[in-house]
């Protein structure tokens, strides 16, 4: 346990759960339902799928939490289960080929692009309509990433796991995490820029 600095709150909740506390179950659910729901929704794009992911994650987690030895953080363990649930769901649907994003396709050509128009999230937070539109553009851009890039992007930039944690969680190399994240971000930049350049929103 000294390698992983355990979160004190989680440790308390796990201990209480093992001692049979229902309150601990509620607290664990409340603590992690929104991040896992966010992850499910950004991976799958549908409310029903996101619900399935959250449900599968918690049911599996509580089934095995009794034996959880806290060798990883609870949060990482839950997301490992959630990521597997997403991949299983994808395999069942069989409709999404996992294509590669090549770096060459994203290279910016000298001077051809002119000014990069990326809106600023903090420009006018009071404008709810603009904010909602912007959110839709971004959510769609994320959903259009090939699954393996989307998975890494969501864990790294949306859920805030670091490179090492993401690599551990997905059982891939740190270099793969970096490569996929970089290409995902470049591709999102491209999609957002082209959306605003075409003036779909103004």
């Amino acid at each position: 346990m000294d390698k992983v600095r355990a979160d004190a709150t989680d440790h308390g909740l796990i201990t209480a759960f093992k001692a049979g506390s229902i309150e601990a179950i509620d607290k664990i659910v409340e603590r992690y339902e929104n991040p896992i729901f966010t992850f499910g929704l950004k991976m799958c794009g549908h409310l029903q799928d996101a619900e399935d992911i959250v449900q599968e994650t918690f049911l599996s987690a509580f089934k095995y939490l009794e034996n959880f030895r806290e060798e990883t953080k609870l949060r990482n363990w839950l997301f490992k289960i959630a990521a597997r649930a997403c991949m299983r769901k994808r395999r069942k649907k069989k409709c999404e080929p996992d294509r590669e994003i090549s770096l060459e396709s994203l290279i910016h050509k000298d001077g051809s692009e002119g000014k990069y128009e990326i809106p600023d999230w903090s420009d006018d937070p009071s404008d709810n309509i603009l904010r909602a539109e912007l959110k839709e553009v971004i959510d769609n851009a994320i959903l259009s990433l090939p699954p393996k890039y989307r998975l890494v992007f969501n864990l790294r930039d949306i859920e805030g796991f670091n490179t090492e944690e993401t690599a551990e969680l997905l059982e891939i190399s740190k270099q793969s995490v970096k490569t996929r994240l970089h290409r995902a971000r470049l591709s999102l930049r491209e999609k957002i820029v082209s959306h605003y350049r075409e003036g779909k929103i103004q």
Binding site: D26, F37, V54, I118, S122, D139, I158, R185, L188, I192
Partner: peptide, 23 residues
């Protein structure tokens, strides 16, 4: 800016009916 933008839109709120069903 792209990364900040994506992070800014990040968190979703899980609807209460889903919470109740899962609980």
């Amino acid at each position: 800016k792209t990364i900040q933008l994506c992070k800014g839109t990040a968190m979703e709120q899980m609807p209460i009916d889903i919470h109740d069903r899962i609980r």
